[in-house]
């Protein structure tokens, strides 16, 4: 007889309880201490009770204990996400005050329709757990239509309770807020893409400029597809800065404006070689009639101008100002 009694108290009793985190587990009017492994996630699980207040996870999920839920204090109302809006609570119709007017509900059933009427049960001292879906009061379908039609309010729908009205406002506000955030994120993404494209283009231009500046062959090779780029690199070799390029009257020539030693200059170059046709400054030996313009290219013209400035012999013919 005594052996049978020992066997009885040692046999673990399976029980289905909602685990909401931690090692304190409420159920059967008691608070158990959870020993051993914790369940992998919040939910209804099967536990083994050995007769004491110690409880152990049985390693499997379980169905909700509906009878136990219905024995607990319950309330009816509407769910918005995991927030429960009770029918019997005083409600201010302001979606921004949703948290203070609602209860957090744990273990909400997946797949509930919008504006579903539900019952929740008080579990333990502080938690509310989803219990079941309730029959609608009547206006829920019309409120859902108003939501889908993006109506501004449900004043035209009869018999809407304050809780349902607040659920409608909060769902509408949440949708608008999500759309605005999505739009903002899209704008930010587009802006980031634009900045990245600009950065890559600037990098490519910078690299092309550096390569062209470092190599005559690259500069001349650039002429056909980017004359301004070739001219910019050629002038940079002599510390001059390209300002503008335009076609000359002759197809084989280009007019180039540039800045050097904080002054603007203009010259005409042979398009295919960057050789100077008209330097824009006086390079004529009046004693011999010798003209020096064609001796130079865009690379060496700034040095010539520098010499003219240094010697006080600069005479500008073409004005770029």
């Amino acid at each position: 007889m005594s052996a049978l009694w020992t066997q009885l108290i040692a046999t673990p009793e399976p029980v289905s309880l909602p685990w909401l985190g931690g090692r304190a587990l409420f159920g059967q009017g008691r608070t158990f201490k959870l020993v051993g492994d914790l369940p992998p996630e919040h939910g209804w699980h099967s536990f083994e009770v050995d007769g004491s207040r110690r409880i152990r996870w049985a390693g499997v999920e379980a169905w909700a204990d509906h009878d136990a839920l219905m024995k607990a204090p319950t309330r009816c109302g509407y769910l918005v996400g995991n927030r429960f809006l009770p029918d019997d609570a005083p409600i201010v119709l302001d979606p921004r005050r949703i948290v203070e007017q609602s209860l957090e509900v744990r273990l909400v059933e997946a797949g509930l329709g919008r504006f579903s009427r539900v019952r929740v049960a008080r579990w333990g001292h502080t938690d509310w757990v989803y219990a079941q879906q309730e029959f609608p009061l009547g206006p829920e379908a019309a409120v859902l239509d108003a939501y889908l039609d993006r109506a501004a309010s449900v004043t035209s729908v009869p018999h809407v309770t304050p809780a349902l009205d607040l659920a409608f406002r909060f769902e509408s506000w949440r949708r608008t807020d999500a759309e605005e955030r999505r739009l903002l994120m899209e704008l930010e993404r587009q802006e980031a893409e634009r900045r990245e494209a600009e950065r890559l283009m600037a990098e490519a231009e910078q690299l092309q400029f550096a390569e062209a500046m470092a190599s005559v062959a690259k500069r001349r090779g650039l002429i056909e597809r980017d004359f301004a780029g070739a001219a910019r690199a050629a002038l940079a070799v002599g510390d001059a800065e390209l300002l503008d390029v335009r076609d000359a009257r002759t197809k084989t020539e280009k007019v180039v404006q540039f800045r050097f030693r904080k002054r603007r200059f203009e010259c005409v170059v042979e398009r295919s070689t960057l050789r100077i046709v008209d330097s824009g400054i006086c390079l004529v030996d009046h004693g011999t009639g010798e003209k020096g313009d064609t001796y130079f290219t865009l690379e060496s013209l700034p040095a010539v101008i520098q010499q003219a400035i240094d010697e006080g012999r600069l005479v500008v013919f073409r004005h770029a100002d």
Partner: peptide, 9 residues
């Protein structure tokens, strides 16, 4: 820079 001598006007 190595360049021709410049005749200035």
């Amino acid at each position: 820079f190595v360049r021709p001598k410049t005749p200035f006007g």
